[in-house]
C-alpha cells in the first residue's frame, strides 16, 4: 500500500471538479456550506476581504479553529499556509487537513522560495497567473492550480485574465515545433519536461480551478466557460446579503454553466452581492497576485 502518492493527490483534485470550495471562518459557516452543496471548505480565520481591510501580517489559522471545522463537516477541509512557510505546512499536515493552499492571500514568509510540496502527505493547491508559474508549481508538487485573482475584491477581472492567459499559452504550445519548445521553456521559466508534456496533451497535468473575486453565479459560470474546472469562493458568500441562497446558487451555476436559461433562474432573488473593490485602484503592493513568482 502506497499512501499519499501523487496520483492520490491529483485524484482528490479530480473529485472536486465541477464543485465549489467555500471559505468558512467557523463550524456554523462550514455546515451551511456543506448543506448548500460545497465539495470542500477552506478553513480560515478571516475571509480575504477582511484580511485586506485589517492589514498587518496574515498567518495560518489557529489549529483549534481548523479542528472545529473538521469535526463539523464530512466534506474535505482545506487550510492555507503562507508562501514558503513549510513549518505552517507541517502543522497543517499534522492536523491531517485534506488540502493545503500555499496562498498569496496570507503574507508571504519567503521572498524567494515556495514550499517543496512533493515532500508532504497532503496535496497542495497553488495560485498562478500564467503557464510558467503553473508549471513551476506543478514541478514543486502542486496537485491542483487555481487562478490568482484578487481575493477579497469581489472583482473577477484578474481571475479572468489569468484563466485566459493560461488557455492562450497552452494553445500556443500545441502548435509549436518540437525544436521551439526549449526556447519557450526558457521564456516561460518552466521545466522543459512539463512544457513538452503540455505541448503534446494540450492540457495541464493537474486540474485548474478559478479563485479570486467570484461573487455571483454568473462569475462562476464565466470562469467555467474560460476553462476552469471548478471554483473557489472566498468572501463572496458569507459577506453577501443571503449566504445560504448565494452558496446554493453558485453550486448550481458550476454544474449548469452551459445553460443560460437555468443560470437566469439561479441568479434570481439572491439579495445583495458583496460590495466590490475596483482592482485598478489597488497599488501593486496591495495586490495579492504580485506575491510569489
Amino acid at each position: 500500500m502506497d499512501k499519499a502518492t501523487f496520483k492520490t493527490k491529483v485524484g482528490l483534485a479530480e473529485m472536486m471538479k465541477g464543485g465549489v470550495i467555500m471559505d468558512v471562518v467557523n463550524p456554523e459557516q462550514a455546515r451551511i456550506a456543506e448543506d448548500a452543496g460545497a465539495c470542500a471548505v477552506m478553513a480560515l480565520e478571516r475571509v480575504p476581504a477582511q484580511i485586506r481591510k485589517d492589514g498587518g501580517v496574515a498567518r495560518a489559522s489557529d489549529p483549534d479553529m481548523i479542528k472545529g471545522i473538521q469535526a463539523a463537516v464530512n466534506i474535505p477541509v482545506m487550510a492555507k499556509c503562507r508562501i514558503g512557510h513549510f513549518m505552517e505546512a507541517r502543522i497543517l499536515e499534522a492536523l491531517e487537513v485534506d488540502f493545503i493552499d500555499e496562498s498569496e492571500v496570507l503574507t508571504p514568509a519567503d521572498d524567494l522560495f515556495h514550499i517543496d510540496k512533493l515532500d508532504f502527505k497532503p496535496p497542495f493547491v497553488c495560485g498562478c497567473t500564467d503557464l510558467g508559474e503553473a508549471l513551476r508549481r506543478i514541478r514543486e508538487g502542486a496537485a491542483m492550480l487555481r487562478s490568482k485573482g484578487e481575493a477579497g475584491t469581489g472583482n473577477i477581472v484578474e481571475a479572468v485574465t489569468h484563466l485566459r492567459t493560461l488557455r492562450t499559452q497552452i494553445r500556443r504550445l500545441t502548435v509549436l515545433g518540437h525544436e521551439e519548445l526549449m526556447t519557450e521553456a526558457k521564456n516561460l521559466g518552466a521545466p522543459f519536461e512539463l512544457v513538452e508534456q503540455v505541448a503534446k496533451s494540450g492540457r495541464l497535468p493537474v486540474p485548474v480551478f478559478a479563485a479570486g473575486g467570484i461573487a455571483t453565479p454568473a462569475d462562476a459560470a464565466l470562469c467555467m466557460a474560460l476553462g476552469a474546472e471548478s471554483v473557489f469562493v472566498g468572501s463572496g458568500i458569507f459577506l453577501s446579503g443571503n449566504p445560504e441562497r448565494r452558496a446554493r446558487a453558485i453550486v448550481e451555476a458550476v454544474t449548469y454553466w452551459e445553460d443560460a436559461k437555468k443560470l437566469a433562474e439561479i441568479s434570481t432573488g439572491l439579495g445583495e452581492a458583496m460590495s466590490g473593490l475596483e482592482v485598478g485602484n489597488l497599488s501593486d503592493n496591495q495586490k495579492f497576485s504580485k506575491r510569489g513568482w
Binding site: M1, D2, K3, T5, N74, E93, E96, P122, P123
Partner: peptide
C-alpha cells in the same frame, strides 16, 4: 462507511 479509510493523508494506491 464514508471515508472508511480515513482522511486524505490516508488515501492510497494498491
Amino acid at each position: 462507511v464514508r471515508n472508511g479509510w480515513g482522511r486524505q493523508v490516508h488515501s492510497f494506491e494498491a
